[in-house]
């Protein structure tokens, strides 16, 4: 019995020591990890709202939760260029998160996939950049589109899905459409385009 207690004590000491070392490392690394997260989000926000000033993209809260971002052209938050929101959809092997930017009329102006762990070589092609091109071809299709145009070709829509990865393509497309519709509800409708007004 004494032996067991001694061993438990040794094991306890080793574990506490290990936890202490890790606490120290975590203390150093944590600000860095959070900084990386912030940088990634900032870059994504800029690709979603290319015309906004990096210092003038402000989150809009509902309770503790950020529901969307407002992007302004000037650092003093004047000249609204559009909104950005995170769309989440269940893909094939992971939840796919996309940051989407729309202008004030509800037309998509930019997007960036924040998180996906899809099947390498298939689902991950939603981020594929083709030979000699600059941006991912799948995501480029969304630019200039509105909520009602968003559906993959197999569902009779305009978005050409990635070959062999319909589930991932559909997840992105449908989550963005849903997000757009929610945003429209929150804003009480997008502002009308010149064409819609003349109609």
């Amino acid at each position: 019995m004494k032996d067991v207690l001694r061993m438990a004590w040794i094991l306890g000491v080793v574990t506490v020591l290990a936890a202490a070392v890790l606490g120290a490392v975590n203390h150093v690394a944590k600000p860095r990890i959070e900084e990386q997260r912030r940088l990634a989000l900032e870059q994504a926000l800029l690709s979603a709202l290319p015309k906004a000033d990096p210092r003038a993209i402000v989150p809009v809260y509902e309770g503790d939760e950020i529901v969307y971002y407002k992007g302004y052209a000037q650092p003093d938050t004047t000249g609204l260029v559009g909104y950005a929101f995170v769309a989440r959809g269940a893909g094939y092997s992971s939840e796919i998160e996309t940051l989407v930017g729309v202008d004030t009329t509800g037309q998509i102006i930019g997007l960036k996939i924040l998180r996906e762990v899809e099947t390498p070589g298939l689902g991950t092609k939603i981020e594929e950049v083709r030979y000699g091109e600059k941006d991912p071809w799948f995501q480029r299709q969304f630019i200039g589109k509105r909520a009602r145009q968003l559906a993959v070709d197999k569902d009779g829509g305009e978005i050409v899905s990635v070959t062999g990865a319909t589930i991932s393509s559909r997840a992105v497309t449908n989550s963005i459409r849903k997000g757009l519709e929610e945003l429209e509800k929150r804003l009480g409708g997008f502002s009308k385009t010149a064409q819609q007004v003349s109609d």
Binding site: A18, V25, K30, R32, I33, E35, Q36
Partner: peptide
């Protein structure tokens, strides 16, 4: 496990 967590944290940061 201690060294693995160190790698995990450092990799997440850098």
């Amino acid at each position: 496990a201690t060294f693995v967590t160190i790698v995990d944290l450092v990799m997440a940061g850098f």
